[in-house]
Design a protein around this nucleic acid. Structure first.
Length: 430
RNA sequence: GGCGACGUCGCCAAGUGGUAAGGCAAGGGUCUGCAAAACCCUCACCGCCGGUUCGAUUCCGGCCGUCGCCUCCA
């Protein structure tokens, strides 16, 4: 398969490492107000990629996704709402996974909350400190960006540029605890009343970036084949992950393939929590077939930013009707419809940098052929092809939501979590 | 400012070194008591300026414009 490699800027041939499963890590959500179309787009893209690996190539895939279940935003929002941060996170995570399961997304093999991996994170942080790559100060621990000459290379920026930019933007370049404005937090000291875990540096909670490094290292080993996420994570999140992880493992590169999905816009601006311009999957589900939502997402290439457009969604519904009608047509016993060319055409589209828009086009052509076949024609084999490409790879249900049996859905597990060491911190809170 | 992406008919959008799919909208028509639906037909020299070439919308350079990222973010 040819897949865009941001380190070379070109399409490169992807293959698994011999004798190993394809190790896929996709950065998950921070659950406090999800799931908007942007989230759905990202996870849907990786769902098709993984389905293609498993179904078309027969490769074994080990898929890990995290949940940032402890975070400033969660703590803040919980306080605003007067609910527990854990309950808030669990509720939004459940909504997220329910939305994705409704859209027929394959669950990860391991779905892990950051809080379930605090202990190994502390181990990693300690190793970074011991190695001189990080320093502890006033209860916090910071990664010394200086220590990694290649820091930020993923986005092609050099250090001076990042520094100049950060300073020009007035982004806390003079946090007294940090040696360098670009240094980032590995362990954050907890304020009184906040959830906290014990650490050698005092009560606190993990920084954002370390969680993904630790989860990937713990669950996928020293190397990741595909590390994915939204394009907005490329910097700094993935740059920081890379710096940490490559300081902890010998593998170079630690990640063989970074895959970033483009942003979804609304009214010309990125759809994001902070702007509040969100289209929620939950709301769409009330009005449209799951297949329509899936097709609508996948009709956009994963590297091309696109704009939310209700009219296009409505248009896409016509595709759903066509595909459903083709899948539901009575097979017949007459002359068999020759659909042999559609499978290879479909696969060629997917193999070309996951060109889902083109792949959908092939599926629609196939549906046209099935529907246009003479009355009584045997379309059974053609329908098998349709189910293979549009069903198993694109992940469509190929039938209305009302016809989907409960046991056909693959619910996502609740993420693993671990409660904070409240007892150790409670006195300070009081 | 730096890095990156993009700029194709009113809107959305595919695509190619040899004069550009499709959808929506619009206009015309068939049908119909009128209308709707359905079906048929019509509708673009591809941001601007150079260069390469027999020939560029498609390749290269510059410009203009839009968007994204630059420690909240899928």
């Amino acid at each position: 398969m040819r897949l865009y490699d941001p380190t070379t800027g070109q399409l490169e041939r992807f293959r698994p490492e011999p004798g190993r499963p394809v190790r896929v890590y996709v950065c998950g959500i921070t659950p406090y107000d999800t799931t908007h179309l942007g989230h759905a787009f990202t996870y849907c893209v990786f769902d098709v990629l993984i389905r293609h690996f498993e179904t078309t190539h027969g490769w074994r895939v080990r898929y890990v996704q995290n949940v940032t279940d402890i975070d400033d935003d969660i703590v803040r929002r919980a306080r605003e709402l007067g609910v527990g941060w854990r309950e808030l996170g669990m509720e939004w995570t459940a909504r997220f996974t329910d939305d994705l399961a409704a859209l027929n997304l394959r669950p990860p093999d391991v779905y892990a909350g950051a809080t379930a991996y605090v202990a190994p994170m502390l181990g990693h942080i300690a190793r970074l400190v011991d190695g001189g790559l990080a320093y502890a100060r006033d209860g916090g621990v910071y990664f010394r960006v200086d220590a990694d000459p290649g820091f930020g290379r993923l986005t092609g920026m050099d250090r001076a540029e990042m520094l100049a930019t950060a300073n020009a933007r007035g982004n806390h370049p003079d946090d007294p605890r940090k040696d360098d404005p670009l240094d980032f937090v590995l362990w954050q000291p907890a304020a009184p009343g906040e959830p906290a875990w014990h650490s050698p540096w005092g009560p606190g909670r993990p920084g954002w970036h370390i969680e993904c490094s630790t989860l990937a290292l713990a669950l996928l080993g020293d190397r990741v084949d595909i590390h994915g996420g939204g394009a907005d994570l490329a910097f700094p999140h993935h740059a920081c992950e890379m710096a940490q992880s490559e300081a902890l493992v010998p593998a170079r590169p630690w990640v063989r393939w970074w895959v970033h999905t483009a942003m979804v816009r609304m009214d010309g601006e990125k759809m994001s929590k902070s702007l509040g311009n969100l289209v929620m999957v939950r709301d769409l589900r009330a009005a449209w077939e799951p297949d329509t939502i899936r097709l609508y997402l996948l009709r956009h290439g994963y590297r091309e930013a696109w704009e939310w457009d209700a009219r296009r969604l409505a248009e896409t519904d016509a595709w759903t009707q066509k595909l459903h009608a083709a899948a539901a047509r009575a097979p017949g016993h007459g002359t068999a419809l020759d659909a042999a060319s559609f499978g290879p055409r479909f696969t060629a589209a997917i193999e070309h940098d996951l060109d889902t828009p083109a792949a959908i086009g092939v599926a629609l052509d196939l549906a046209d052929a099935i529907l246009a076949a003479p009355s009584g024609a045997d379309v059974g084999l053609a329908q098998d092809v349709l189910r293979a490409v549009a069903g198993r790879v694109l992940g469509l249900w190929l039938k209305p939501a009302a016809a989907i049996a409960p046991q056909e859905r693959r619910p996502w597990p609740a993420p693993e979590t671990t409660p904070p060491d409240v007892a150790a911190f409670a006195p300070a809170a009081a």
